[in-house]
């Protein structure tokens, strides 16, 4: 059964940032080579927050879910679905959870006993994929609400990289940008047709799937990640223009009608380069391109919702603003969510 005419909206967003903070200077100090002295300038990352002992993907996700519920009218038992979209699935410290899925532990900790649950993995586009799936379940009429969650304990990958990076061309250089965070968002049926999600979709350009691979290390705890940063940046920018163009066209929008564009947060220079490319291609600019790297770094699948949360807290959004979340992730995944800001603005920062 599909219910026609249903629109979905974000009802609330929550995040959790671990207290422990480490500066880029401290990270760079661990690297055996002096080649990356300008890393902070290049990336725009001054610090990132990392898990302390006792914190992991599960605790980050659960705390983010609790924060989300604090800004929501939903009780845990009201939620129909829980999707955990973390890349990292650390539980009990450094153990990577395989079965049962992490979503089961999250829903159990939250008391969301009535929710259907499973885990989704789609690299840094995980939460945007979760939004897409949740929207479809709601439109189908199977559920009315869904919490999409991620807890990313990825800073250990930076520890691995600090030992192996020898030059600016190192395949583990991008790993030094990583920080830990949890994020959660509740998606529900929109009450007004003008509110909510305009589009959520993604595609995978699998011919580029080798450009960023994260796997279990054989010599140290946890994972390491190898990225051809230059190439992945190049193909992401060049391929995303046609995808954005198509999505804007299908929704009778132009780039200058987007008030805020929130790209996946990798580095300041990459985002600025992308922004310049889009401005030339579309001959128009969005109102603002959001960069949220300075204090958090790249927090994998949670970056878009961390940026949204910060801007909500700082009351920068107003109802009716059109926001584009642009996901570029290993795979190569290109995901786009465009939505109109609703009365959620009233639940933050007041």
């Amino acid at each position: 059964m599909t219910i026609k005419g249903i629109k979905c909206q974000f009802e609330s967003i929550g995040v959790f940032i671990p207290e422990k903070r480490i500066t880029t200077k401290e990270i760079v100090g661990k690297v055996q080579s002096s080649c990356i002295r300008r890393f902070e300038l290049l990336t725009g990352i001054k610090a990132r927050h990392i898990c302390a002992p006792g914190e992991d993907s599960l605790t980050l996700a659960v705390h983010a879910a609790e924060d989300c519920l604090r800004h929501s009218r939903y009780l845990p038992e009201d939620l129909d679905m829980i999707l955990c979209c973390s890349i990292s699935k650390q539980k009990n410290g450094a153990s990577f959870q395989c079965e049962p899925p992490l979503s089961l532990y999250i829903k159990d900790a939250m008391g969301a006993h009535n929710a259907l649950n499973f885990d989704i993995t789609n690299a840094c586009a995980g939460m945007l994929t979760g939004v897409n799936i949740a929207e479809n379940f709601i439109k189908q009429g199977t559920i009315r609400s869904c919490m999409v969650i991620s807890g990313e304990h990825v800073s250990r990958i930076a520890d691995h990289a600090a030992k192996s990076v020898k030059s600016l061309l190192s395949s583990e250089l991008a790993s030094l940008t990583l920080g830990d965070a949890g994020a959660a968002v509740i998606i529900e049926r929109a009450s007004h047709k003008s509110d909510g999600l305009i589009v959520s979709d993604f595609t995978t350009l699998a011919q580029y799937n080798h450009l960023c691979i994260g796997r279990q290390s054989r010599t140290s705890a946890g994972f390491f990640m190898k990225t051809d940063a230059r190439k992945i940046h190049e193909v992401s920018i060049s391929n995303s223009t046609t995808i954005i163009e198509k999505v804007l066209h299908d929704n009778t929008l132009t780039m200058d009608q987007i008030d805020y564009l929130i790209p996946h947060q990798t580095s300041k220079s990459s985002i600025r380069f992308g922004a310049k490319h889009y401005a030339n291609y579309f001959n128009a600019k969005p109102g603002e391109i959001v960069i949220n790297l300075e204090e958090y770094g790249n927090t994998a699948s949670t970056t878009h919702f961390l940026a949204l949360y910060r801007y909500l807290k700082e009351q920068r959004f107003k109802q009716g603003d059109r926001i584009m979340l642009l996901g570029l992730a290993s795979g190569l995944v290109m995901g786009i969510v465009i939505f109109t800001m609703n009365e959620m603005v009233n639940q933050y920062g007041r």
Partner: peptide, 19 residues
């Protein structure tokens, strides 16, 4: 996907033996 733009969307789903 994308109503005219070529593509397949791929991702992993983990729900153990019920996947």
């Amino acid at each position: 996907i994308w109503d005219g733009l070529n593509g397949t969307s791929s991702f992993d789903l983990n729900n153990g033996g019920c996947g």
